[in-house]
Simulated assay, not measured.
Amino acid sequence: MRVLVVDDDPASRHVLAAHLAGLATCVMCASGPEAVETVRQALADGGSFDVVFLDIIMPHMDGHETLAHIREVEEAAGVVPENRMRAVMVTSMDDETNTMTALFDSQVSAYLVKPANRSELLEKLVALDLLSLE
């Protein structure tokens, strides 16, 4: 499994990557624009990511905006909706408005509240059919 982790906080990026160690190859980005370019380059190279973990609140380009741009890049590359990477929004707030916006407006599959714990993260990946724990 290839995972893109996008968060302006280095500690948060590393926590998610540590939880995924041995289960996935992680690419980490510190900003929305960096993530969009990383996806663009991966698609140009004939690859992609299975899932992107996006912090909702980031400076300059938040998680919602970043995902919208990623979806535009996927569409321009001819990736059909059912083959697009899954998106999991990550937030330090237990904010129902942001969560509902993420889940319904941005084609997000799930959300995690920081700090993410490993068991909850793995449960999300299993629910998204990205991981089997058998």
Rank of each mutant, 00 (worst) to 15 (best):
M1D: 04
M1E: 04
V5R: 04
D9I: 15
S12E: 04
H14E: 14
V15L: 15
L16M: 03
H19L: 09
L20W: 01
G22H: 06
L23V: 06
C26F: 03
V27M: 07
A30T: 10
P33M: 04
E37M: 09
V39Y: 03
R40D: 07
A42T: 13
A42L: 06
L43A: 09
G46R: 03
F49V: 11
F49N: 01
M58Y: 05
M58L: 07
P59F: 07
E65K: 13
L67G: 01
I70C: 14
V73E: 04
E74C: 10
A77P: 06
G78F: 12
V80P: 01
N83A: 12
N83P: 00
R86Q: 13
V88L: 09
M93Y: 08
T97I: 11
T99W: 02
M100W: 07
M100P: 00
L103V: 08
D105C: 13
S106A: 12
L112N: 08
A116T: 14
R118S: 07
R118M: 10
R118G: 01
S119A: 13
E120F: 00
E120K: 15
E120R: 15
L121N: 01
L122N: 05
K124Y: 00
K124A: 01
L125Q: 07
V126L: 06
L131D: 04
L133A: 13
